[in-house]
Design a binder for these strands. Structure first.
Lengths: 200, 200
DNA sequence: CTGGCCTCATGACATCCGTCATCTCGATCG
DNA sequence: CGATCGAGATGACGGATGTCATGAGGCCAG
């Protein structure tokens, strides 16, 4: 019997998944939670064989939860995500998750993936893997990403500057290099592009 | 027996929902599809008693599909959504959908909502309804919304202008009034704010 | 240790953008 | 029929923004 913790903020999907998985004779869901912090606690207290985490779970996202679970010597982690962006896959694999599954995968296949992971295998959605291999890596430095993140909401440069504790001129220089690297002509387009690639 | 068409681009949720609904003795899913256009066609050919549509379905979203289904004298529509923004609820109700359900609703309750709708009742998530009543209405005109939508990706004004077939100066005037109405100082902040309110 | 890369900064310059006043042209309404 | 209003456009002005040159300091690899 494989014990599972399921974490997803969408109660509809979470509940449906739990019901489906419990129908399998060799699977049992030992806990279901709605955010990343609760997932970490549930894994610590229930000691499941597998943790299934949604990636997008405000406030604490699944990647952070996976990192903490794995750092604590927890069970293998399966990450489920809605927006399967290549950059996220890289980050997930570097953290050490065992499987990366977009929500476009049929629900029926999840049970099989869980068994595979339980047997020590890994699973990565083929389509995302392909695009992750062909897509170029994120060309931005950590600081540049931080500044681009601060620019996300469309605020004027002066506000971005005070948010990241920099001189406005410095911020403009950073954004200028970022835009050059991304091949766009406004910082807002840069933020949009980086978001679509999963870099911020 | 209540026949149902389920439309959702997330195969995982869609499949799980279909399995759960089919477990109910009085419900049967007659078709499941992955986008809005297919939903309209499936309803036309299968003539179900209820259509369950996801709101976010690229390329054709659920609201447009609901509109076309209801305009064609189709069955009652239940809209399911991930981001339950108040502005969307207004638009959905004005189109004539029978129920508005966020994905934070437990999957088990969906069957009950389907029966309610089949009996001629309507259902609106209480939390969204409350915020829709307290939140202020969208102050933007249809044309302004269209232009703001074109500005979403951060493109320069010249590109926005050619996208909506207007003179650049006119676009700037529109964006200026939009920003004034929304109380922000850049068009990008305006797009961001409008998005968070569910207006675009 | 030296060159290279990253971070942070300043100043100058050319656009771009937001604001405002004003205009035309249909459509609508009294 | 004249008045009015909305959509669309123009031009001017000042401030915001993108670009570039330049430089200082820190850190790491060769």
């Amino acid at each position: 019997m494989i014990g599972i913790v399921v974490a997803d903020d969408e109660a509809m999907l979470r509940g449906a998944l739990v019901s489906l998985l419990n129908l399998e004779p060799d699977l049992t869901v030992v806990a279901e939670v709605g955010d990343g912090d609760a997932a970490v606690k549930a894994v610590a207290s229930h000691r499941p064989d597998i943790a299934v985490l949604d990636l997008e779970m405000p406030p604490a996202d699944g990647l952070v939860a996976a990192e903490r679970i794995l750092a604590a010597g927890g069970p293998p982690v399966i990450l489920v995500t809605r927006h399967a962006r290549p950059g996220i896959l890289r980050r997930a694999l570097s953290v050490g998750v065992s499987a990366f599954v977009p929500k476009t995968t049929p629900a029926e296949r999840l049970a099989g993936i869980i068994r595979d992971v339980h047997d020590g295998r890994r699973y990565v959605d083929p389509e995302i893997a392909a695009s992750a291999l062909t897509e170029n890596d994120c060309p931005l430095t950590a600081r540049e990403l931080e500044i681009l993140r601060a620019a996300r909401t469309g605020r004027p440069i002066s506000e971005i500057a005070s948010a990241v504790h920099l001189a406005p001129g410095t911020v403009r220089n950073y954004l200028s290099t970022i835009m050059a690297k991304l091949g766009v002509s406004t910082r807002h387009a840069a933020a949009h592009a980086a978001w679509e690639q999963g870099w911020i």
